[in-house]
């Protein structure tokens, strides 16, 4: 029990620092911003404390907002994703997902890919809605969020393969 907590805390800090140090200053074509920090919400234990996840993802998004001066956009998108997570699990792994031993942190199967895809789409579209709501650059923001989601998915998969624990 204690070790999962430690793993989650270290994952939180690691993903945030990787996001801030590397991915924030990386912009493909000048405007695409991959956001692999949402991997924390995706990789959170399936049967973990749900209120804990909500609070942690709020904190995660808020930290991103502090660094990017973006108001509360990331925080909103993160808690929406955290709240929708059980539904996404049900969609990707079937109704009885709670009784299976699911490891997301493993080789890429269609189920796992669909989970990552849905999560990224939900997170980015929430952010897109909040951004498009304030400024009148609808199409520009739409293209940005679509391209950014593609790059977020790619970076998420790369990170999963990199941190995958070796069991040999």
């Amino acid at each position: 029990m204690n070790s999962t907590l430690l793993v989650n805390i270290s994952r939180f800090i690691l993903l945030l620092s990787v996001q801030i140090l590397i991915f924030n200053s990386m912009s493909f074509l000048g405007f695409i911003l991959p956001l692999p920090y949402i991997l924390f919400i995706i990789l959170y234990p399936v049967n973990g404390n749900k209120s804990g996840l909500l609070a942690a993802s709020f904190l995660l998004g808020l930290t991103m907002d502090f660094f990017l001066n973006s108001g509360g956009i990331h925080a909103t998108a993160c808690i929406v994703l955290a709240f929708m997570r059980p539904l996404l699990f049900k969609f990707s792994f079937g109704v009885s997902y709670e009784y299976q031993t699911i490891k997301i942190n493993d080789a890429l199967t269609p189920e796992r890919f669909s989970l990552i895809l849905l999560s990224v789409v939900i997170h980015h579209s929430t952010m897109f809605l909040l951004e498009a709501f304030q400024v009148s650059f609808f199409w520009d923001i739409l293209i940005r969020s679509l391209l950014s989601s593609v790059f977020t998915i790619i970076s998420c998969i790369i990170i999963i393969y990199l941190i995958k624990p070796n069991k040999r």
């Binding site: 209120s51 909500l54 808020l62 108001g71 509360g72 956009i73 909103t76 808690i79 929406v80």
Partner: peptide
């Protein structure tokens, strides 16, 4: 409790988003 926590956090972050504009 989960749903209420979600609504509370959502309203806080919404407030922050709107306030920043």
């Amino acid at each position: 409790s989960n749903r209420l926590l979600f609504l509370l956090l959502l309203s806080i972050s919404f407030f922050l988003t709107i306030q920043s504009h």
